[in-house]
């Protein structure tokens, strides 16, 4: 809720009042977001990554999959800015193209988690009783598994590929969303405006989608941004184990895996993809934290 003084419409003339733009909660949250330094840093990192992904063909200096065995394990130089890997491929170009893949993984995996998690959590929290019991016990079972083990098991069943890795990482993220959404829905559904919506004859669907969920958005948005970071990390882990992106796809986790044999002689092969993952996750985490503060100022204290 805003702390700014409430305009007194009795004093203001009608014209002035009409000109004064009415600020929605969303715009006020955005202004708060832009005041925080960490979220700006996060936002800058994310923007750079997105621009890199879109402009990859123009930024990359080499083709990401062209091999050149004579040039293998070259240290960073003017020709190969970040060196070359075990097959002589340009690491800089591979990382640049890898951005596309990572962003796609992040968005799709988190998209799956969000859609499934929000539906499950909202239904469980809103209807309560046995519906809640059944859904949340299943979620508990999922949470009892270490997430990476569950993802590995899922990929083992589905077969190793980038798409299946995304699905697995998405499913692994569902419990987080379901829990967060459920608790938000539980608190929002007890508010008087939800009671008012019932009193004016609103049906369950209307109350859930027009009143309860819009007021539970803050934690969902925060979890989405934070979840992208985790999803990238999980997907990189799967690729590292050979269960995600298959060669020669320039996926960062797979690049780490390919380069680990030469860790001592050619550390750049591993260091730069690792750094890219680190930056990506850091960007989304900083931005997510900033978002949380902006959307729920009460938490900040």
């Amino acid at each position: 809720m805003s702390l700014q003084p409430i305009p007194n419409p009795e004093i203001k003339s009608k014209e002035i009042a009409e000109q004064q733009k009415s600020k929605s909660l969303g715009i006020e949250a955005l202004l708060r977001l832009l005041k925080s330094k960490t979220s700006i840093i996060g936002l800058i990192i994310i923007t750079i990554l997105i621009v890199t992904a879109i402009l990859a063909p123009f930024i990359a200096t080499h083709d990401p999959t062209t091999q050149s065995i004579p040039d293998r394990y070259q240290a960073p130089s003017g020709e190969h800015w970040l060196g070359t890997d075990e097959l002589g491929r340009d690491i800089f170009s591979r990382i640049v193209y890898g951005t596309q893949i990572s962003i796609r993984i992040g968005l799709i995996a988190v998209g799956i988690s969000m859609i499934v998690g929000v539906i499950l959590g909202a239904v469980a929290g809103y209807f309560g009783r046995w519906v809640d019991q059944i859904i949340m016990r299943v979620i508990d079972i999922m949470m009892a598994f270490p997430s990476i083990l569950l993802a590995i098991a899922l990929v083992a069943v589905l077969g190793p590929s980038l798409t299946n890795a995304m699905i697995a990482v998405g499913i692994v993220g569902v419990p987080q969303f379901a829990r967060i959404v459920r608790s938000a829905v539980l608190s929002v559904k007890e508010t008087e405006y939800v009671e008012a919506a019932r009193a004016i004859g609103g049906k369950h669907g209307r109350i859930l989608f027009r009143h309860v969920l819009p007021n539970s958005m803050a934690p969902i948005i925060v979890q989405t941004t934070l979840g992208i970071g985790t999803a990238i990390l999980d997907a990189a882990g799967l690729s590292f184990l050979g269960l995600g992106a298959q060669p020669p796809t320039p996926e960062w986790g797979a690049m780490l895996s390919d380069g680990r044999a030469a860790l001592q002689n050619a550390p750049w092969v591993v260091a730069f993809p690792g750094l890219a993952i680190f930056l990506f996750v850091l960007g989304f985490n900083l931005f997510g934290d900033g978002l949380r503060d902006a959307l729920d100022p009460k938490l900040k204290e």
Binding site: E192, E195, I200, H211
Partner: peptide, 28 residues
């Protein structure tokens, strides 16, 4: 109908006054 105690909690903070007032009429 009902009028609530807490005027800060009884209006959906994400809806304009117009939307809040229109809702019951829309429903009917």
């Amino acid at each position: 109908q009902i009028i609530f105690q807490d005027p800060y909690a009884s209006l959906n903070p994400r809806k304009t006054i117009e939307q809040t007032l229109a809702e019951p009429m829309k429903i009917f």
